[in-house]
Write a protein that binds this DNA or RNA. Sequence first.
RNA 1: UGCCUGAUGGUGUAAUGGUAGCACAGGUGACUUUGACUCACCUAGUCAUGGUUCGAAUCCAUGUCGGGCAGCCA
Length: 615
Amino acid sequence: MSDQPDSPAPALPSDFIRDIVAGHVAEKRYAKIVTRFPPEPNGYLHIGHAKSICLNFGIAREHAGQCNLRFDDTNPVKEDVEYVESITRDVRWLIEGWADHCLGFKPKGAHPAAVTSNGRPDYYLAPVPVAEIENPKPKVATEPFFASDYFDQLYAYAIELIKRGKAYVCDLSPEDTEKYRGAPDRPGQDSPFRNRSVAENLDLFTRMKAGEFPDGTRSLRSKIDMAAPNMWLRDPLLYRIRHIAHHHAGDKWCLYPLYDYAHCLSDYLEGITHSICTLEFVDHRPLYDWILGSLDLPRALPHQYEFAKLNLGYTLVSKRKLLTLVTEKVVTGWDDPRMPTLSGLRRRGIPASALRTFVTGVGVTKFDSVTEVAVFENAVRTELNTTAQRRLAVLRPIKIVLTNIPAGEVITCAATNNPQDENPTTRKVALTREVFIETDDFAEVPPPKYFRLKPGGEVRLKYACIIKCDELVKDAAGVITEIRCTAQLDTRHGQPNADKKVKGTIHWVSADPDYFFDAEVRLYDRLFTVPEPAAEEDFLKVVNPKSLEVVTAKLEGSLIMTMGNLECYQFERLGYFVLDTKDSKREVKPLAARTEASIQLVFNRTITLRDNWAK
RNA sequence: UGCCUGAUGGUGUAAUGGUAGCACAGGUGACUUUGACUCACCUAGUCAUGGUUCGAAUCCAUGUCGGGCAGCCA
């Protein structure tokens, strides 16, 4: 992107939530805009989360505010530290260079502190900008926020709710609780334990915390309205008993709060101004407001706003279903390059900036839509086209013999690294007697309008010269093993006939062992065969059996010399590729020490080039 | 037969009472040492019916269709 002073400023995204925030900023309702991204550490982040991350961090950066990464870790049964680590890594990767300065972490081990707000006792955990702590060097150890760090405070608020007659201990079993709740079109019935005295509730709740009762025997419930048309207002549970250790809080608790109770209060404790979540929580908003409103809290209360989550064609955007793909070994792991997880997309070679462009571009609405994959692919191609270095590689090689070039002779050609650069640089590639071309780039019986190599035909070897096909060599089975051609060396760049036109230009790699090397290349296709795998009765039945193809490709020798970490390349005419950092052997031997059998590098094809010819 | 929420080209999204626009996809050309990129042009839309208004995608009414809600998940 150009930074010229007279280029128009890029338009900031606009949507109904940003409009609300902008209104609040205009009226100076808050001293600072604070949002949060609140994943539960029970799976890896996926492309749907990217939309939420970009929304929350985007709003923070547009208003010089802050966005806290907070783990909503109130259900130790499903959660694990593996997930808090992967999520933290993925969030930092996605916002790097864009909103790092808005990322809110807290000093390691910090808990909400007693403060005075508007002359009254209060609790608050100040978000500390990561940038402030870590740049240029970390001053103190930091970590993301955890709802589980608020368990003490949450417990105290629960006591307060009981004292105010707004919560009670219920002895109904889970089954009976469900029966008493009624149905959407039928009011519920009051629990027989609904009118216990405050003293009895206090006693029972204290003993629940002390571990006197087994799982499921008692719960703490809000006292709202069992006849409410909104199911979430029928005395929803606040706490349940779970005799299990917590991955972050340790073994201190056997009583764990539920989402609705923990989330709004966590938002309050962190001073969140705008609590943005997806549409399925619209029905919960009255509960969110009820809990906060029942405690007479001294600071401004956070408010919840909801938007439609991202749905992508041919893609599953559900942590639970993605977990199934992992456990059923449909893929190799959460970071399999075919997975729509942030780890998978990163390994696939999708730049974080392209992901941001995409999720920002789809907009934020309350309409439950399905975005076509083409929109995502367009964002990726647009980004990679400007940034990726071009290289020559042949995926499915067939050998060409240039009969007029003597064996051992090396003709050096200049190849452009990236024609999109303002001042493109070049590198040297070797043209030798034998070269590999793509099997697809030759047709013995060409279809109509085919303008690559055919018997008697001419084609240009990119950056080199035009060649003419003279003769085919076949084995006993009639399979072509070699194509014999004449090189028109005077059509090279700078030579008299350089301007000679032919319809086709193809990529190639020298077949001289000094000028190519083998690499494993993994070619991916969509993971599902139907546009909406989530709508399927059994999504495992619509898994694409051809989602992965592995080939041994011939790569231009210069590539191995310049190979860096996580660099994106365009293999000309084939697509964009990235080194697989997990499966590649990183110690690259000198060219001379290479052997045919030592495949050391593995590449993932990020995406193909757009192709208006095939299909 | 409850409550909540939504409906603009094929897809996604803008227009907040005043010219229905943008992106992607699709099509046709131009250019091209990537059948890429780029450029030009084209196709195609306000869920329905009524009302308010000089004027309605926008406001009102009714209807239709879609999504969500009955976890001690989040």
